[in-house]
Structures are given as structure tokens and as C-alpha cells.
Design a protein around this nucleic acid. Structure first.
Lengths: 130, 130
DNA sequence: CAGTCATATTGTATACTTTCGATATGGTCG
DNA sequence: CGACCATATCGAAAGTATACAATATGACTG
């Protein structure tokens, strides 16, 4: 019950012209829009996936774990850049780490993320760049 | 064939210590990481979904089209804020518009986006806020 | 055709993100 | 323990996104 108690601000005039019972309509609409906190959490996940280099990191990890220097090679990007993207993915819970001596190996935390990315690929209607 | 021709920059030293044939390893890694342009397109889609208010707009539209003043009510946000989020969703191809006199009605362009969002909800492991 | 209405656009202040060199950390090896 | 290595973190500059008041647009109404 984090949501939908009372109208916080004034309802738009236009709404009162569109609905007989605007207060009731507002309640329904706000219920449909769902909880702000949930939206924020989901938004964070999508934000982690909204960067092309981070997507490429995930793709690189799809077939098995890699250490940072391999990912650095995969993206052809500076070490610190790769490290911060990996931090971001870790914070979002999308990858996990294993240390082996001075090497750090990364892998996808939950393979389900690839379904998400594949669906996105389909929706984005990407033409195979061949 | 937009990708993977030659190593552009120097390979990291560490890679040469990890692989017998670092150039070959680099090629494989870059193939796995996939195409930059594709990553960018998918990234744009995720970016459109990375904002909590835009997610709430989509949720509000899930059960049927709404006009702007209804969405404004659903989010309890100023008109111009809602309008720019709607623009963003439209640009990303996620919603489409129909005009009826001075009212504009918005609806999801492709219901597949809700699968995406639902999967994200599952991955984000959101606790039902009750 | 003047007024009003719903929505779109613009302008801008502010906040967040990204990039990457420099530097810190913590491991390994001689 | 001293040099070196792989990675992480910091910090500043540049870029991008967000919010929202003000204003423009284009439609309906008298």
C-alpha cells in the first residue's frame, strides 16, 4: 500500500470534462499506473541495459565467463571504462564475479537476462547487419 | 559485415599472458561482443524503458488507450512533463497516437513490450509492495 | 473570427551518466 | 619485502536526460 490514497494535486480541468466522476477516474488511472517504487526498480534494471557497451559485455559473457582483460579486448575500450561498466552491471545484479589470484572472472548472474535482451532485439526490429 | 576486421588498438599485455594466440582470442571475443550498431539500437529501446514515469505511462495504457489528460492524472505530473515522456515513447516506437478533435489518444504500439517489462519485473525480483 | 481548450514544443536550469587518466589495492613471484 | 601485475576506485571534464514554466499550435465553439 505505497500508492493511491488521495489526489495529491488538483486534477486537470480536461479530466473533469471527460469523466462524470473525475475523482473516481483518477483513482482508477493511478491504480493502473502502478506503484512508483516498483517502476523505479524496473527502471534501474533497464538503465543498466541501456548502454551499448554494457550490452556488448553481456553478449561477450553469454558463452562463458571472461576476465576483465578479455572484456577489455572484446570492447576495445580502456580498462577503467570496462571496470566501471562491470561495476554497473554488478550493482544491477546482472553479473557476478569470481576471483582467481589477480584475475577477476565475470559471468551472467541470471541467464534470464538474455531472454530479455533477445525480446528487446525482436521489438527493436533490428535488421541483421550483414 | 559491419564488425570484426582487425585489432584497432593494442591488445592488453594481460591478454597475451592468458592466451597462446592473443590475436585469435581477440577476434573471437569481438565476435561474441557482437555488433556495435545493434547494441546501440537495443540500448535505445532499453533507455526509453529506463524511466519510472515512462514505465507507469505504459502500465496505464495496458488496459486501453488514454488521452494526455488522463495520463497526466495517472502520474500526477505536469502536462509538459507527460508530453515529453510520451514523445520519447513515441520516438522509441513503443506507443502510437490517434487524434480525436483536440484530444490525443495514446496506446501501446506493440503489446510485446509488456512481456519485456514483465520479464524485467521478474528479474528485478520486485517484492510486491503490499 | 475571437475566445477557449487540449496538447505540443521550446528553453533552460539542474541532475545524472559516461569516459578515461591517474592512482590505490591486493595478489604473486623472485 | 620489493617489483610487478590485474583490477578497482577516484576525480574531473564532457555529454545527456529530466523537469517544468512559458509559449506555440491547431481544433472546436459561440
Amino acid at each position: 500500500m505505497t500508492e493511491s490514497t488521495e489526489p495529491i494535486t488538483e486534477l486537470p480541468d480536461s479530466l473533469t470534462r471527460l469523466h462524470d466522476d473525475p475523482v473516481d477516474a483518477a483513482t482508477t488511472l493511478r491504480e493502473r499506473a502502478g506503484d512508483t517504487d516498483v517502476a523505479e526498480q524496473v527502471g534501474c534494471l533497464f538503465a543498466a541495459l541501456s548502454n551499448p557497451q554494457r550490452l556488448q559485455l553481456l553478449w561477450a559473457l553469454r558463452d562463458g565467463e571472461c576476465c576483465v582483460c578479455e572484456l577489455q579486448t572484446a570492447l576495445d575500450a580502456p580498462q577503467s571504462t570496462v571496470a566501471s561498466h562491470l561495476r554497473c552491471l554488478t550493482d544491477a545484479g546482472l553479473v557476478s564475479t569470481r576471483k582467481d589470484g589477480k584475475w577477476s572472472y565475470y559471468r551472467p548472474a541470471d541467464p534470464a537476462v538474455f531472454e530479455l535482451v533477445d525480446d528487446a532485439l525482436a521489438i527493436a526490429d533490428v535488421e541483421a547487419t550483414e
